[in-house]
Each structure stands twice: as C-alpha cells, then as structure tokens.
Design a protein around this nucleic acid. Structure first.
Length: 333
DNA sequence: TCGATTATTCGATTTACTCG
DNA sequence: CGAGTAAATCGAATAATCGA
C-alpha cells in the first residue's frame, strides 16, 4: 500500500487511462521492480522460505534487498535535502536513536542521491534523523544511492516522513509551503504529503495567513491540529503580529513552555478582546425550587433534588408531554 | 477512587461554490 | 470542464466529567 503511494500522483486514475504525461510516470527507482513474478509466482511461492521472506518484507527492506547499491558513506559528504521539513530535532530522541545504532548497527539505510552540483557529495532524500545520529557516532552511514529528480526526491522524502516520523500539522504545512515556493506542481505536493487537494489548500491558506516568524516562535506544537491552527491563523491575519510576537517571546516563562503551550498562549493572546469566560458550565440555580439546571452548548440537564422534594421528578415526568405540547404552541389534546 | 458517560479534537471525506 | 476553496459532517481517539 505504501508502494501505491510512492506512485501517488495519478494513483486513482491508473486503472482507467494509461499515464499520459512524461512526468507522471512512477518513480522508477523507488518502486520495487513490480515483482518480477508474473507466471512463476505461484510456483516460487511454494518453493520455500526465501521467497516468502521476500514477500513479507516491507517496502524499504525490499528496496534494500533488490537495490544493488547500499554503500557506506562518510556523513560529512552528505547534505540535507534542499527542502527542510522538520523544525527541530528532539535531542533525547536523537540520543536514543544514536545509542540504538551504536548497539545494533544501522539496520535501515538512508536514501541519498548524488549532489546535483557538488561532485562527490550527496543529498538526503530521507533518513535525516539517522544521518544526524550516525554523525554523532562518528562512523560511516549506510546509504542507498539513487538518481532522483527533484520531484522524486521531495515525494520520497515526504512519503518517508508520513510513514515513519510523525511531523506535526504545522510542520507539514511548512513543508507544503516550501514546496510551493519552489514551484512544484500541486500534484507533486499532494503526493509528497499524501493529502488531498482540500487539505493541501487549507495548509497553504494557513501558511499565507500566519506569520512565518510566529510559526517558528511557536514551534511544531505536535498536539495541535488543523482546526486550532486555522483558528489562530484567521485571528493572526488581522492582528498586530509584531506586538504578538513581542508579547509572546518576552514572557519570562517563554523558554520553559512546551511548543504546545506556546501555541495556546498565542491563541489566548490573540483572542483576548472579549469572550474567554471559558466553557465552565454555569449551573443555573432555580431559586427556591428543588431543581438544578446544567447547561452546556449542546444540552441541558435537569437535576431533581429527591431529598428535598420527593416525587417532584415523577410529577414533572408525567407532565412532560403536556409541557412539550405547550412549548410547541399546540393545545393539549 | 474507579468505571462509565460526555465533550472535544483530530484528520479525512463529502458536497457545493467560484473562478478561468 | 477542472482546479482551488469553503463548509459540513463523519468516526476514532482523548480528555474531562460524572456518579456510585
């Protein structure tokens, strides 16, 4: 299934018409040679463990098994992708990854392509985190080298992010925006992020409304999704961004706040004008009556004090139909 | 305190509208 | 018509709250 997504671009239309345009063809290097199995498949399947192991292997492992070019490279020769995705790397997580590699070795190679201009250098398609971890260890990194076009690079980079690392919503938005700035087609961006055009549209709208500086100040905010980012963005659009950034960054506890909290702070700041009496349920005390009404946005709950006035609940219950009829303005039948 | 209910938020999807 | 946008709605996952 992930393999299907690697093709991505004209995915749904594949069965119908043959791929028309040149740049819509699948990413040859990444798609595991469409299983050379055709007629022999059934036979080889019975042949034994080797084939079965192949079939069970995930896409990356299969690429590895079939890829001829897993080599070891000095990490110093490898540059980042020309599009950055992740905003910040979690140092703790990175250390964990590094120690895991130190212990068990690097299980999965990263994917690089030869650098377009700098001879002898490489560019990462995916595996930024593994690269950083291996760099810490000061050893060589195992990598698969493939010739990739720019489109192929960003699509596989994005696909890998989707599959493995979980980028926060705003990080995905940033990625989308950077791709758009580089004039990648909508289809390419959609394939890279594995989103539909509606979702992509929203992401780009948010990025247009938001201040880039503000986004970076807040950080990835992993727990904040589309809805609240849209809310914040719509406020920020017609707010004093400078003042907002100032207020946010000058708070003395700014450094100690998590990215999620910084987002919340920003949202609070920008909506201070009015509202914010919080969704505290204002219990309505019906004075002198043994009934309490709890109101929320969607419903009300009547609580009868059976100790103070036993039987009142049953009494109301019996009259409910009449009350409702009265409410509807119809005479009681 | 603990288990069950309710509310909130998430991403995804559907539907409809507006432009070239 | 297709691409982009906007809004409504869905089910799932969590968080918050209630009630014994």
């Amino acid at each position: 299934m992930a393999r299907k997504n690697l093709i991505g671009i004209s995915d749904s239309s594949m069965p119908r018409h043959e791929t028309p345009a040149l740049n819509e063809r699948p990413i040859a290097g990444l798609v595991p040679q469409t299983r050379s199995s055709s007629p022999v498949g059934g036979i080889t399947k019975t042949l034994g463990s080797i084939t079965q192991k192949m079939e069970r292997a995930g896409d990356l492992e299969r690429q590895l098994a079939e890829g001829k070019m897993v080599i070891e490279i000095d990490p110093a020769l490898i540059d980042a992708s020309f599009i950055s995705d992740r905003m910040e790397m979690d140092g703790v997580e990175l250390a964990a990854l590094a120690s895991q590699i130190a212990e068990h070795g690097q299980q999965v190679p990263i994917l690089v392509r030869p650098h377009a201009t700098a001879k002898g250098r490489y560019q990462v398609a995916y595996g930024h985190r593994r690269l950083a971890a291996v760099k810490q260890l000061g050893i060589k990194i195992r990598a698969v080298v493939r010739e990739l076009s720019d489109e192929q690079l960003v699509v596989s980079q994005g696909q890998e992010n989707n599959a493995r690392a979980n980028l926060s919503y705003i990080e995905r938005c940033l990625f989308a925006r950077r791709l758009e700035e580089r004039d990648f087609s909508r289809a390419t961006i959609m394939a890279a992020l594995n989103v539909d055009k509606q979702a992509l549209s929203k992401m780009l709208i948010i990025m247009r409304q938001m201040s880039l500086a503000l986004v970076q100040l807040i950080g990835p905010a992993p727990d904040v999704g589309r809805r609240r980012w849209m809310e914040l963005a719509s406020h920020v659009e017609n707010a004093d961004v400078e003042a907002l950034i100032g207020a946010l960054s000058s708070a003395d506890d700014y450094q100690t706040l998590s990215s999620n909290d910084r987002f919340q702070r920003a949202l609070d700041l920008v909506t201070t004008q009015k509202q914010k009496p919080r969704a505290t349920t204002p219990d309505i005390q019906t004075s002198a009556l043994p009934v309490t009404i709890k109101k929320t946005a969607t419903r009300s709950t009547f609580v009868f004090d059976s100790k103070a006035e036993p039987g009142f609940d049953d009494f109301v219950h019996q009259r409910l139909a009449d009350l409702y009829a009265e409410f509807k303005g119809k005479p009681t039948a």
